[in-house]
Structures are given as C-alpha cells and as structure tokens.
Computed example of a mutant assay.
Amino acid sequence: MIALAVLVVGLLEVWVPFVSREGDGNLWLSSAQVVIVAAAMVVRRTRPLIAAGVAFILFSGLHIAGVTYLLFYGQFVPMVLTTFAVARHGKGREPYLGAALIIGTMLVGDLLVPELQVPDEIVFHWSVLFGAYALGTWQRVMANQAALARQQAIDAQVQAAARTAQAILEERTRMARELHDVVAHAMSVIVVQAGAAQLVSDDEDEVRRSLETIRLTGAEALGEMRRFVTMLRDQDETALRVPQPGLAAVTQLVDDARDSGLPVTLAVHGTPRGLPAGIDLAASRLVQEALTNVRRHATGAAAVEVTVDHAEDGLHLGVRDDGISVAGTTGSDHGLIGMRERVELYGGSLRAGPADPRGFLGEAVLPVERS
C-alpha cells in the first residue's frame, strides 16, 4: 500500500503538477523514475539496501543530469522511507553501507543541485533523513533485544524441562532398583513357603497357611510390578543391591538427623498395621528426602517435626520446620519432583510449601487398603 501510494501521488505530482515539483525535466523520464522507485519500495523490508540504492542513485544521477524534475512525493518521501528501512531491516553491515550511500548521494546533491543549496532546505532534508535513520536504528536494536530475550526465555524453559526430565529419570531408575529388591524378597518368601508346604504335606492347616502366604506375597509382588511397569530400568544389571528400608527405619533417620545437629522430633499416631512393601519403602524415602531438604535449604531451623499417622484412609506423613529458605539455597527442586513421583505412583497426594507463620511444610498421603 505504501508503494502504491508513492506511485500514485508521485505520478500526480509529475503530471498535475503539484507545487512541490521543482526544476526542469522530462515528464516521461520523471514518470519512469517514480515507477522504478515505487517498485523498489516493495522490497524495502527484505532488500533494504537495494531499495535505498535505487531511490538515492536515481535521484542523484537523473536529476543532476537534468532529465528529471525535483520531486517531494516521488523522490524525497521514498528516500526517507528507504533510509528508515535500511536502518531498521538491514542485516550485518547493510545499515552502515546504507548510511554511506545516503550521505554520499546527498552530499553530491547538495553540491550540484541548486534547489538543495538553500540553508532552510539543507537543514530540513538532513534533519529528516537523520531522524529516519535514528528511528530505524532504535527499532532494530529494540527488536534484537526482544528477540534475544525471547530466545533466552525459551532456552531457560528447555533447560528447566531437561533438568526435570533428568530428575524424574534418576528417581524412576532408583525406584526400579528398589522394585528389584521388593520382588526378589517376595520370590524368596514364595520359595521358602512352597518348600515348607512340601515338608508338612500331611498337615492340611499348615499347607493351607503356606499357600495363603504364597498367594498374598505373589499378589503383592505383582501389584508392585504393575505400578513400575512404565518405569525406566537401570541398564547396569550388576549394580549393587542392598536391603531397602521401610517405615521402621524412620526412627533411625530421625536419630541420625538429631545426631547431625538437626533438632528433630518424631510423633507417631494411630495403630501401626502391615503395609505393602512398596508403600513401606516409599514412606521411608519420603521422610528421608524431606529431612535432606531441611538440612540443605532451611536456615536457622529451631524445630523440625516428623509426623507419622496411621489413619483410616491411609498413611499420613508430615515434615515441618521453622527455618528460613535463603535465596540461592533452594536447589533444583529435584527432591520434590522425586517425592511427587513416588506419591503419584501409589495414587496418593503430596503438598509442599511455606508453612504459617514461617518455615516449610511437606505432607503426603499414601492410600492403604484395610486388611
């Protein structure tokens, strides 16, 4: 639309003519110049240096040769627009080459075109061209900074997503190792009970109890397998396997934390009951991770309370501290990601956030079917 406006108004300026048309020239050559310059305006964004070159070189060459009129709308307006375009859309060295082209052709015009040598005219056209170039340069700088900020934001999001994915992968790998130990223990129980059933084959009650133990243990192991079926496995089959802790290890965790200087107390509510091996292990890991987070991120904690509640709807775990999280000590949140992964695996819920009036509170609920 801008190119079309330059074409129409420029031709009207030549043929009407407007009072802005000055000097002597050929109507047809002046019209051809307007058409060529208007065509160059179409590519002023994609080829700004070419558009500026066409506008300025045709002006200086044809008008100095005395074959075209001196036009405001057909010549000067396109020169201003291409000056802005070369500063705004130029790539690499194009803005600087464009500036040299503009200055060079205008200096030649000022020296050889009498109409441009009036002081008011000199101040006018140099001020306008300089303003157009400065505005284009400012917009280019702002656009580049905005593009850089967007790219940095994208990079930060990609890195955060990568760190989160890595944390989930590491946690799932560790959980897969633990699954190996849970299922291996279950298989050992099954083998032992099957052998016992063979030895007491004459005692129907003992055989029945052994078979029931085998059934329950196998069902529990299969349940753990179903939960972990989508987990990533550690490729190192020779990794060291150690006995996995359960909820009974929470007391030892609290004692160890207290020995390290952390003011921890343990409160157990409700009547303990048998827990599936996976939930038993998950509970221990949740408390362990929560205490680790307190050590790392809670500054000035005067009291840390660990709560284990054997409620009707499941196992409730809570770790609360009254410390202050200092900037720069929040870590990568990998611990919370792993804790949430464990809780969601068993259909539970996790809430972690600032406590009132100060400190941090982590609460988890692990559903446990009543036996």
Rank of each mutant, 00 (worst) to 15 (best):
E171S: 10
A3N: 07
L232G: 01
A134R: 06
W138Q: 11
Q288F: 12
H185A: 05
I122C: 03
L27N: 03
G104L: 15
A311N: 01
T292Q: 10
N293I: 05
E237Y: 12
I64G: 08
L199K: 11
Q288Y: 08
V368E: 01
A165F: 06
Q288P: 00
A99E: 07
V108I: 15
V86F: 08
V35R: 04
Q235K: 07
T251Y: 05
M225Y: 08
L211G: 08
Q159D: 06
A162I: 04
L366W: 00
E212G: 03
V182A: 08
L211R: 04
V34E: 06
A282S: 06
V77N: 02
I190G: 03
A239H: 07
W15Q: 09
G136C: 05
V108L: 15
L315E: 00
P357F: 13
G74F: 14
E212F: 11
E121R: 15
F124R: 14
E369K: 00
P48N: 09
E305Q: 12
A161R: 10
N26F: 01
S260G: 08
A39C: 13
E289I: 10
H125A: 00
V9R: 00
P245G: 10
Q244H: 08
L361W: 03
V34W: 14
D234M: 04
E289R: 05
A87F: 09
A327G: 04
A165V: 04
L29Y: 02
G25H: 05
Q244S: 11
V67R: 02
G53F: 13
E121V: 15
I57C: 12
I168N: 04
A311V: 06
R45W: 05
L281M: 14
